[in-house]
Nucleic acid binder design. Structure first.
Lengths: 204, 204
DNA sequence: CGATAATTAGAACGAACGTTCGATAAACTT
DNA sequence: AAGTTTATCGAACGTTCGTTCTAATTATCG
């Protein structure tokens, strides 16, 4: 007879206080990790910024790794979801690629720390955490790659995989230099980069 | 009277053994830091890989920070020097931009760990180390930006600063995905990326 | 109110870190 | 061969880290 372990019913976590605190920890962790890197960030710093005790963190997350995983999963899911919503409103190949760029640029502007952590700390994950995030990334990448493919006029010359990787490079690098006070609006950047990838800087 | 401190004459470091060991430490450090990140890499790991005792590292470098600085300075100086040599052999704007891409791709292929450390661990430096590396990077960036500017046909539409940053994004991202066993030769990538930035994926 | 669960706080753990120090060996100079 | 520099080593220091444990507090609800 299987031991009749009493099933612990998931606590009613509609409790808004719980989710508020959880979100504030995620936000604090993003800031600290974005500034110091994952290995350089300490749970103590995160706890202090979130206004909680050190051990309090472990009530919400079972380890530092899980905390990083939660940031990346949360951020990447939101990014993908946001893109799919944008794609519903457009039809042409160019518009769809434009939606990819707009989505990425605007999401970045509103979630700089989160996106930096996602771009910069992929390899800080390991085991199941790494695999699960990789799966999400792959799905997002495939979505973008198909849209890139629609926009390639000579598939013999340009492979959609590689072109997508070049594009992701340009997109993922912006956290290294973009400063809203010195640089143009994200809309301008999005237009420019789209035009470059479609027609280059030599086109009329 | 100023105290007549005996000037320690720099030891004759033409000694090839010394430089051999120093290089092997730099190489080991690049590998470890590329794999674990700067904060995650330990001096003990570097020492083990270099075949030296833990404290032996401190005979060659005065701190972990200086070790990272040495890697970045060494790598970036070599990269810039290599580019200037390539530029002597070409004349047209297109050829000059091609030289930038060729240089970056081939240097990357032969120094993957070094370049990854340079791209990924800029912000792990601080103080004077950070400023000195920034100066080298700025010089290199300026060189590339001028070459990019030569290739822009409508300066009103495309700003050489931003285009260069997009380009650096594509270049600096390759360490995240390039696998010599699965991907085309660097020469192919260089040709492709040049064509994209000049004429786009929609050109004939 | 009283009981049960949800949440926080404080102290402590062992492990690993960067760095230092003094002793020691090897290499070079005279 | 003696003396001096160059290079290596092992042990140790103080600090910080991620994590755990137990006790205390707060909220929830019959």
């Amino acid at each position: 007879m299987p031991s009749a372990v009493k099933e612990k019913p998931l606590p009613a976590r509609r409790n808004s206080q719980y989710n508020k605190k959880l979100s504030s920890i995620l936000k604090a962790a993003s800031e600290i990790i974005a500034r110091h890197g994952f290995e350089g960030a300490s749970i103590r710093q995160v706890a202090a910024k979130a206004g909680i005790g050190l051990s309090g963190i472990y009530y919400y997350f079972k380890s530092k790794d899980e905390l990083l995983f939660a940031i990346q999963e949360n951020t990447f899911s939101t990014l993908a979801e946001s893109l799919e919503k944008r794609l519903e409103a457009v039809s042409t190949a160019r518009e769809r690629l434009k939606a990819v760029l707009d989505n990425h640029f605007h999401f970045f502007l509103n979630n700089m720390d989160d996106l930096k952590v996602c771009v910069h700390e992929i390899e800080s994950l390991s085991g199941k955490y790494y695999k699960d995030i990789l799966k999400i990334r792959r799905k997002y990448f495939g979505l973008v790659r198909n849209i890139v493919a629609e926009n390639i006029s000579s598939p013999a010359e340009f492979n959609d995989d590689l072109v997508s990787l070049y594009l992701f490079g340009s997109l993922n690098w912006i956290y290294m230099w973009y400063d809203p006070r010195r640089n143009p609006d994200m809309g301008v950047l999005s237009d420019q980069l789209l035009e470059i990838f479609l027609h280059g800087i030599k086109a009329t």
